[in-house]
């Protein structure tokens, strides 16, 4: 077997990219378990017997409502995710399957959402939330994230739905399956790889967002974890142990969700559907 130079180049590129992507995470992880002195003296070193400490974690749990922030973040992320996937898939199905007056205009309108960053509307959004009495609620965040995530979700899911053979829906219609059932029993299972993709793409920015929690829910115990971490970063002193520890804790759930979804990412479920 000969190894083609092209393949080697690709692999080198991938390895470099992996190092680049994982490096910072690795740094956070190792430094979270080191003393402050060790963090600055030898930032790249692994923790050893002298430098190993969990003081950062202790301080995070003692000095902040870490559990609460964590729970807020999780709620916002999971609820947003479920809504984006569900509404997105339904909208994508409707826009690809049914031809109705204005469907093209509606698709275009939704596509614009991909190009216009939602942050441009921050001021109006804040004003609207004030009017609606939603400031300092998780609902405000969820609404914004759903609006932010939907356009791309509809685009990606629509592409996948289009690839599902039309005969499959027709067969179900001959079988007397209602349109809702077709969506839930046939379309949704078949686009699960796409749903996993959408989930990963929407989950990470939502979990990591600092902007909207800062504007819309900065208090009242509705802070998300990214906001919670900020309390250790001061203008004059920064508690690096606590910052790194809380970051480590913040990475964990996204990692778990990612692993959960990535199983489906590559799975080609439609194999064997037709022909």
């Amino acid at each position: 077997m000969t190894i083609r130079p092209g393949r080697i180049a690709v692999h080198i590129a991938l390895v470099l990219y992996t190092i680049l992507a994982l490096g910072p995470i690795f740094l956070i992880l190792i430094n979270a378990f080191k003393t402050r002195r060790a963090i600055f003296a030898d930032p790249l070193g692994l923790p050893n017997a002298q430098t190993l400490t969990t003081i950062g974690f202790d301080r995070v749990f003692a000095n902040s409502d870490f559990g609460l922030y964590f729970f807020n973040s999780l709620t916002v992320t999971v609820v947003s995710l479920v809504l984006i996937v569900l509404i997105g898939a339904m909208a994508a199905w409707a826009l690809t399957e049914y031809r109705f007056r204005g469907s093209t205009i509606l698709s275009l309108y939704l596509a614009i959402g991909i190009m216009v960053p939602i942050r441009l509307g921050s001021v109006s959004i804040l004003r609207m939330m004030v009017e609606l009495n939603l400031v300092n609620t998780l609902t405000a965040l969820i609404l914004v994230y759903v609006a932010q995530g939907l356009p791309l979700a509809i685009l990606i899911l629509g592409e996948f739905i289009q690839q599902i053979p039309k005969d499959l829906r027709d067969a179900a219609r001959c079988d007397g399956v209602s349109e809702y059932r077709i969506f839930f029993s046939i379309i949704l299972p078949l686009i699960s790889p796409a749903i996993a993709t959408v989930a990963v793409f929407t989950m990470v920015p939502v979990w990591n967002d600092l902007w909207f929690p800062l504007i819309l829910a900065p208090g009242d115990g509705k802070q998300t974890i990214t906001l919670g971490v900020q309390q250790f970063i001061g203008q004059y002193v920064t508690d690096w142990n606590a910052v790194l520890a809380s970051l480590t804790l913040a990475i964990a759930p996204v990692l778990v969700l990612y692993l959960l979804f990535s199983r489906y990412l590559v799975r080609g479920l439609t194999a064997g559907a037709v022909k």
């Binding site: 179900a172 079988d175 399956v177 064997g272």
Partner: peptide, 29 residues
């Protein structure tokens, strides 16, 4: 609608539900 016409259709592409086994494919309708 198709379901009320007392017809059954066999498609050129077979159009089997890929995520269901043979039994469920037949029993689904």
């Amino acid at each position: 609608p198709p379901a009320d016409r007392k017809i059954a259709m066999v498609f050129q592409s077979y159009a089997l539900y890929p995520h269901m086994n043979v039994y469920k494919n037949m029993a689904f309708g």
